[in-house]
């Protein structure tokens, strides 16, 4: 099973067709290499439990850290940790899609990723960041439980839970590196909504109601739903009064 077959660039990056800037590309390569080295386990590979990192979370995470002038070495470790954590939590969503003989390994692959995230943060020594990311994990799992157990949810509530799942780790980075920055928080929320609407978020087969059948086919929302949601959040018309500098750098041009 391979995740993130393609990275749909949305939200703050829309219109940026130049690809990654050199610095961001180099960082992406380093972080991906590092995260994969952490995820790597001979037996998991032998049993074809493959994993990948989320370019979407990298892009936004990188922009958040860069605009806070986080030193490169710290940014590399933080991004690696966050991507490991994101993957560790996400692979657990797939548990029922694997064959019986591989399910146990999928559980452990996710746990292994999370253990490595913790190891990196422990070495970094930032207890406050650790605390904020853990709080994000708590909210993510509560949102996932809601999607799993609640009665059919309205589209708005479904979208809110999906946003929590996709955005909360990034919001934790904003809280930590840009305290009290409503602008950054709004930017993250908008990017995540666009990401979900564009079908970039992992399809969640446990979703209920009318969304569910489409989700199973790989499309979360009908054009009508998407238009309504765009109207609700004005995601494509949104403009920040003062755009965070890091986003410009992350985009490469504007």
């Amino acid at each position: 099973m391979i995740y993130y077959p393609q990275h749909t660039r949305v939200g703050p990056f829309e219109g940026d067709d130049t690809g990654l800037t050199d610095a961001r590309e180099a960082m992406f390569q380093r972080v991906t290499r590092c995260a994969k080295a952490h995820m790597d386990h001979d037996y998991l590979a032998k049993r074809k439990v493959r994993q990948a990192v989320s370019p979407f979370h990298f892009d936004l995470g990188y922009a958040i850290l860069q605009s806070a002038a986080v030193p490169e070495s710290e940014a590399e470790r933080v991004l690696t940790a966050v991507l490991l954590l994101e993957q560790g939590l996400s692979i657990h969503d797939e548990i029922d899609e694997w064959g019986a003989e591989q399910q146990g390994l999928v559980v452990l692959a996710g746990d292994y990723d999370s253990s490595k995230y913790y190891l990196i943060l422990a070495e970094l020594g930032d207890r406050q960041l650790m605390h904020e990311l853990c709080e994000a994990v708590v909210r993510i799992n509560e949102a996932k439980m809601d999607l799993l157990m609640a009665s059919p949810l309205s589209l708005d509530v479904y979208m809110e839970r999906m946003s929590t799942i996709e955005a909360e780790l990034l919001r934790a980075l904003v809280r930590h590196y840009h305290p009290n920055s409503g602008a950054w928080m709004a930017q993250v929320d908008e990017a995540v909504r666009n990401h979900i609407l564009a079908g970039g978020a992992r399809v969640r087969v446990f979703t209920r109601g009318t969304v569910s059948s489409r989700a199973r086919e790989g499309l979360l929302f009908s054009a009508k739903d998407a238009a309504r949601l765009r109207g609700t959040w004005s995601v494509f018309d949104y403009a920040l009064p003062e755009e965070p500098k890091g986003l410009q750098a992350a985009e490469g041009k504007r």
Partner: peptide
């Protein structure tokens, strides 16, 4: 799935 989320939580 619920067991996964409970453990991660």
């Amino acid at each position: 799935l619920a067991a996964m989320y409970t453990g991660d939580y």
